[in-house]
């Protein structure tokens, strides 16, 4: 795989070339403490920052018109995200499968130029063992910028930038040293009585789904605007909400919080549909950082284990 040298002289040139074809964004901390994608002024010098809300928000927005009587024109520019951590790329790989036939996802996906980057783990995260290359265009690691996708190759082929070729490809982060018993990747959903104990502390607020990079539940809402034009929207939903499993006539297939927790844990630990039997948690730790009751995925599994002892 080809790479470009990433040093003080090449960074500004690479950044200028990317900025000429897309809006370049980098994760930065805002005044309110959240980490969001902001316009980049130069190639980011700092380590990768995990955004508060994951990348899915750029691909399946919180509210999105999926059909309208009045066709709208999509005027969004291509965007390049500089410094996407491997956990978020792993999540995109999963959602690429879920939304493989979805034209809205595909359009936004095509518009995103992803520059992955190697990162250091913090106290909350525990990335999954990743085999193969993550789905990105470029990958920055140890002074090298790897040209991962054909369109990245094409973009830089026209310019004479110093670099080289290596059969090995980038060295991906090996993950936080999670003790085996703490790892979600070797766990099954805790038994019902243990989930009852966790559910007693869960507030059912759904923030875990909102910040989870692999959660993708949405509801379809029909609406009429001020001038009478009709549209259909897809709006983020959460399996932690009481109405998520309710059908016409009032029967609820997940009436209790523990039923809804089971649903969420089943998705993270065992996957749904074609991904069944595959752990979907990518170990970003956002659920642990955001949960007001301190119930991140690892904490839930740990409390279940303690209760069992």
């Amino acid at each position: 795989m080809r790479f470009l040298n990433l040093d003080e002289t090449t960074r500004p040139r690479i950044f200028a070339l990317l900025s000429a074809v897309c809006d370049t964004l980098t994760a930065d901390r805002a005044d309110d403490g959240t980490v969001c994608w902001h316009p980049a002024l130069s190639w980011p010098e700092s380590d990768v920052r995990l955004t508060t809300v994951p990348l899915k928000t750029m691909l399946v927005p919180h509210r999105e018109i999926v059909w309208s009587e009045q066709p709208s024109v999509d005027v969004r520019h291509p965007r390049a995200l500089l410094g996407v951590p491997v956990c978020d790329l792993a999540a995109i790989a999963q959602l690429d499968r879920v939304f493989a036939a979805d034209p809205f996802w595909q359009r936004q996906r095509h518009n995103l130029f992803l520059v992955g980057a190697s990162c250091l783990s913090d106290a909350e995260c525990f990335c999954s063992p990743w085999s193969g290359l993550p789905p990105c265009d470029l990958f920055a690691e140890a002074g090298r910028l790897w040209l991962v996708s054909p369109r990245a190759e094409e973009l830089f082929a026209r310019y004479d930038l110093p670099g080289g070729e290596s059969a090995d490809g980038p060295v991906l982060p090996l993950g936080h040293a999670v003790q085996k018993q703490d790892s979600p990747f070797v766990q099954s959903v805790p038994e019902a009585d243990l989930l009852d104990l966790v559910a007693a502390r869960c507030l059912g607020c759904g923030v875990c789904s909102a910040v989870c990079p692999t959660c993708h539940c949405f509801d379809l809402r029909d609406s009429v605007d001020d001038v009478g034009d009709v549209s259909r929207l897809r709006v983020w939903d959460s399996c932690q909400f009481v109405g998520h499993g309710r059908v016409a006539g009032g029967h609820n297939f997940r009436p209790r919080q523990q039923d809804r927790l089971h649903c969420r844990l089943e998705h993270k630990l065992q996957g749904f549909g074609p991904d069944h039997e595959e752990a979907l948690c990518v170990g970003c730790g956002r659920c642990a950082r955001s949960c007001p009751a301190g119930l991140g995925l690892r904490q839930i599994l740990a409390s279940a284990r303690q209760a069992r002892q």
Partner: peptide
Amino acid sequence: ERRMRCGVGECGHCV
């Protein structure tokens, strides 16, 4: 019977 919203295996309600 489940709450089927999208019908195409994306929205997650009918699992």
